[in-house]
Simulated scan of single mutants.
Amino acid sequence: MWDTDSVAVYFYIIFFMLGCWGMVQAWLSQTRTETIHPFKAFVHLLAFYLSYLLVPLFFFSLYAGWSGYYSIHQAVFIFLLSGILIYARFIEPHHVSVKTLQYQLNPEQKMQRPVKLVLIADLHIGLFSGHERQLKIIVEKINQQNPDLVLVAGDWTYEPENTLADELAILKQINAPVYSVNGNHDEQYPGPPIQNLLQHALKVNNVIDIEGKIVEFDEFRLLGVGDLWAGKTDMRYMPDLPQDKSWVILSHNPDTVDMVPQLPKRPLMLSGHTHGGQVELPWLTNYIMEKVSILGHKKGLYRHEHADVFVTVGTGMVGVPFRFRVPPTIDVIELI
């Protein structure tokens, strides 16, 4: 009953049944998704659910190598590949890290009281990420930092279901005001149907949309700028605004920094969009990043002619349901 051929048959039966389950789940999820590209959403969801096949494949490769059903080279290759993909699919996306940075906003004078900002971006609630387990981890880690304010640099969504407001309800537990701007996935894709849904979800969960608005703080002003790809990044008016305080600019796409005009005090822009590559592979990731950011932004702090820009790797996923060597990250920036 438990000879090698029998075990292989049981494995293929389980593999087939799990594959059928994945196809059904992908189809059902697609029907609840707010999208103008249902087939594309189905394909992405299929990759998400079929990734569960990696688990039995991982264990079967051990048995197949030990029993001689596979050659040792085949078994090692399948074992390593499936193991890496399991890590990238099921482990790293939930391993939310926290990184800190001190930044002197006004080089000529330190602030009277440091201000702790928490920056997150690219939650991409929808097909792959931003579900209850991950959002709970994010909120808990944010509150552990005891921030003065939380900034969300866009791309809230990735073809979400129509229960978005309920999914974001946990954000009410954040113990600081939350300010936000939209990203390209919120504005341009999947399209107009998502905008009212997102606007309602943010409003009922106490997230303050500051696109095109200025928020006054004691020693700096916070400006929300719309998405670059949506054509909402006009900042030519900034030199005409009061310049007695330093500026912090919240904008989804870091390439927006190229549009910041010269100001008396050098602003700091906070952005996301790049995911830090999301999957870090030699050469390939850097090649893809050239398409994502024309100015070469990936992650961290960059200095440009008229402003500095800090790029967070974000917390969600698009394209493929994997993160590898780029864990979801909450950035704590202490303005001094």
Rank of each mutant, 00 (worst) to 15 (best):
H185M: 08
S271W: 04
D308N: 08
G296L: 08
K99G: 00
K291T: 09
G226P: 10
G316N: 01
A169K: 14
N196W: 08
L151R: 06
L223Y: 05
M17Y: 10
F77S: 07
T329H: 02
G300D: 09
V76G: 05
L135T: 01
S29M: 13
L281V: 10
E159H: 11
L268F: 04
I125M: 08
G231C: 12
P38R: 10
E187N: 15
Q188A: 13
A75N: 03
K203V: 11
G276K: 02
L164I: 07
V204G: 11
L28K: 14
L45H: 11
W27A: 13
M17L: 15
G276M: 03
Q243F: 05
K245Y: 05
V76Y: 06
D331T: 08
K298P: 01
Q112W: 01
I138M: 02
W229H: 12
E216W: 02
D3V: 07
P267H: 03
M317W: 01
I336M: 13
A153S: 14
I14M: 14
E132G: 07
V257G: 00
Y189L: 13
W66P: 00
V204T: 15
F15G: 03
N162Q: 10
H73L: 14
F60H: 01
I294T: 14
I208V: 15
A47D: 00
M235L: 15
A75R: 03
T31N: 14
Y69R: 09
F48P: 00
K265R: 15
N106C: 12
G212P: 09
T312A: 08
P114A: 04
E34N: 09
V279Q: 03
W21K: 05
G296R: 04
S129W: 02
V181H: 00
L335C: 05
L281C: 06
A165N: 10
G319I: 11
N175Q: 15
A169D: 12
V311A: 01
Q104D: 14
E334L: 11
I336K: 12
D148N: 14
S6G: 06
Y87E: 08
L198E: 04
V320G: 00
I142W: 04
M17W: 13
D209Y: 10
D255H: 02
E34P: 06
A307K: 00
G226W: 05
H185F: 06
S29F: 13
D240R: 13
L223N: 00
F11D: 04
K110Y: 02
A169H: 12
P254N: 01
D122L: 10
F324A: 05
V150G: 03
H297M: 07
Q145D: 09
T256L: 03
L164M: 09
Q243R: 04
E167P: 00
G126C: 08
E280F: 01
C20G: 13
V43Y: 06
L281D: 08
A201F: 12
Q109L: 13
I13A: 09
V215F: 01
Q109F: 03
F217C: 05
P193C: 01
L202Q: 06
L18S: 12
V76E: 13
A88T: 02
L53Q: 13
D148T: 07
L281A: 10
V152M: 15
G22R: 04
M1N: 12
T233M: 08
Y63S: 04
I78P: 02
G231Q: 08
N106D: 15
K99S: 09
N146I: 07
P147V: 11
L81C: 11
G130S: 04
H252T: 05
A121C: 10
R32K: 15
M259K: 15
Y70E: 04
